[in-house]
């Protein structure tokens, strides 16, 4: 009989039963992604409220999945959207095609297009997942559909209790904070 070997194996199983659980019961409990996480995009604004996007279509050209559609138009003195000559009249990202590679963010010359840590992208129809400029530009709040009661830090070492469920943008950052996808550090 090979009883010692079996008991040795059982010892492993039994000691593991009493270890900390690694699973998280999502969506009640969540783990925050790391700052570099490549989630859904946002279009940033200048501090004076003008859009940073200049409608150059570099992001659309860089996209390996052809997920971005941009149509630029001329700014006029009465109708000014961005500094400079042009702005994006139509800006759409199709999240059914997007592969979250981040090449568009690298391509953007004005740091208008950034990626957030928001990853809960689902919808009931195809149209819903083609995000328009109104949804992407930062004035639109990123609302979590399933408010969490507890959150873990990215490495799961700390637990944070969330008092008021629904959140706008990412709770880790102050109001005007955006994660810098290029360095992983934040900028205010």
């Amino acid at each position: 009989m090979a009883l010692p070997e079996i008991l040795n194996g059982m010892k492993v199983v039994i000691t593991n039963v009493f270890k900390r659980k690694e699973t998280i019961s999502y969506p009640e409990v969540r783990r925050q992604p790391y700052p570099r996480f490549k989630g859904r995009h946002i279009l940033d604004r200048h501090p004076d409220g003008l859009e940073k996007c200049i409608g150059c279509e570099l992001c659309a050209g860089a996209c390996p999945a052809d997920a971005i559609y941009v149509v630029g138009a001329e700014n006029t003195p009465e109708n000014r959207f961005s500094p400079g000559e042009r702005y994006a009249q139509i800006y759409q990202i199709n999240y059914l095609r997007c592969i979250f590679c981040g090449l568009c963010v690298e391509a953007c010359p004005t740091e208008a297009l950034l990626m957030t840590t928001e990853f809960e992208l689902s919808g009931d129809s195809r149209d819903e997942l083609i995000y328009t400029k109104e949804q992407l530009i930062v004035d639109a709040p990123i609302i979590r559909h399933w408010p969490a009661k507890t959150e873990y830090s990215p490495d799961r070492s700390e637990k944070v209790k969330i008092k008021d469920g629904g959140m706008v943008r990412d709770a880790r950052y102050p109001e005007n904070f955006l994660p810098d996808t290029r360095t992983g550090k934040g900028s205010e």
Binding site: Y34, R36, F37, C101, G102, L103, P154, T181, K185
Partner: peptide, 28 residues
């Protein structure tokens, strides 16, 4: 995989090693 997420921003299909080096330096 958490470490990949910390370094590359994604857990799979990372798009990290590129011709000439790597996409981005290791984070703090």
């Amino acid at each position: 995989l958490d470490f990949y997420e910390m370094v590359t921003g994604l857990r799979m299909n990372n798009n990290y090693v590129i011709p000439g080096g790597v996409w981005e330096d290791l984070p703090d």
